[in-house]
Design a protein around this nucleic acid. Structure first.
Lengths: 229, 229
DNA sequence: TTACGCCTTATGTCTATATCTTTTGAGAAA
DNA sequence: TTTCTCAAAAGATATAGACATAAGGCGTAA
């Protein structure tokens, strides 16, 4: 077999990391590289395309390909379902519905979810436990105008997140991470002290332009979101 | 021109999101799809490969391709240099070196960075300002065994991060995000109240197995890390 | 019944060639 | 000098055909 695109990619990457190809310098074109590797241009193309995708090199038609001055550092973050997250830690997962009620959307939420004047929402409060200890507190609002069937659904056994991903699997979302101080309620749920710094994720989800759900996920004290790159 | 791989990809994605292809169901093979789209197999292959990469479908040789039961939700997070991050906010960036000193590595750091018994580190404390207001506090340790030239370098004008990405551009790293309570020192630097919940990133960087640097980046009160997917 | 091994099949990848698209840079025009 | 236009260059993508590889499944042997 001839040389593979992986080998080409690895070789180019080696040249870059070992300094044979300096950051900012431009590279030979695909035709020449294909000739020097003794392979087809498509093979070189795939290698280069992936390197560009990885943020290592920059490609522009006619201008050619050059090694990025500052390689883009990027990580892929998998957004897990909390149950899977806990089970991957090797802990037993338990879910509890604390509170669930359909209600008119409060003003702050109406603005945030871009709801109409008299839209109703289903407000759910849930807890997720790892080996019996509080792991995550979930405060969720579901737009009943977009998902009226949510009102009939019983969330005592399966969490709203799991129900949502199976009901409306292909949505757009925005997620944001930040730090909050535990108030008395949260401190009680998460078994920590009022004022403790907690890691919180907020997620807003849309389907075809319509807001489906907004959720605040507050993690137990000391939680870390870790990634390799 | 014939149909593009983007069109094929878009069409398959449409079929999935609109429920024509149910989650968990298996799809026709590449040859059949190519025939039905009236294009080459390579075109279908690229569309399917990207969908698999996006976590929408699952592919296995011989077994074929099926729509994932639970599509993997993933985001790409670009790790920015703080200066760029601030300038992208449209604010003026200012950097200040607070403190810099070479010293023997303290025990906790030795363990964390996997340093040898008598390795020395350069401990740098810096501040990053956006439009004059504190934005980020940086507490950094550089392994002088791995990067002795750091000791001679003057960090009063350019931050250690910028120096590092230009000196050792291609490294491996682990990054983790969490929440911390501001202690008196940090509160003073970041102009907030002691006990405030702050968003903190920790990053450890390696080059060929050797630990290069460890950094704690503490953001001003209210900082959010936001992503779309 | 169970375990091993081969055959078939679907995806993975390479080749060679062709056309399309974007963008640069040169030359013409103002 | 500046602006506009256009051709060439390089990457982006399509095609047809071939072979490689992994793995499901069936048949055979223990």
């Amino acid at each position: 077999m001839s040389i593979t695109y992986r080998e080409v990619k690895a070789d180019i990457l080696r040249q870059i990391t070992q300094g044979e190809l300096a950051p900012g310098s431009s590279m030979p074109n695909e035709v020449d590289l294909a000739a020097s590797y003794g392979c087809a241009r498509a093979t070189v193309n795939r290698a280069m395309r992936e390197l560009a995708d990885d943020g290592i090199i920059e490609r522009r038609r006619k201008a050619g390909t050059r090694v990025r001055l500052n390689p883009i550092r990027q990580v892929r973050l998998n957004i897990p379902i909390v149950g899977q997250e806990i089970e991957e830690l090797g802990a037993a997962y338990r879910y509890a519905l604390v509170h669930g009620q359909a209600e008119p959307a409060p003003n702050w939420l109406r603005a945030r979810m871009a709801l109409k004047r008299d839209d109703r929402v289903l407000h759910l409060t849930c807890m997720h436990y790892a080996d019996g200890a509080p792991y995550q507190h979930e405060d969720r609002w579901i737009n009943l105008d977009a998902l009226p069937e949510a009102e009939q659904h019983d969330f005592s056994d399966i969490g709203p997140n799991e129900w949502l991903v199976s009901t409306v699997p292909f949505t757009e979302a925005q997620i944001s991470f930040h730090a909050v101080q535990a108030d008395a309620t949260i401190a009680d749920y998460l078994d920590c002290t009022e004022g403790d710094a907690l890691f919180q994720a907020e997620r807003m989800t849309w389907l075809e332009g319509q807001t489906i759900t907004f959720v605040q996920l507050t993690y137990r004290r000391g939680h870390r979101l870790t990634m390799q790159y």
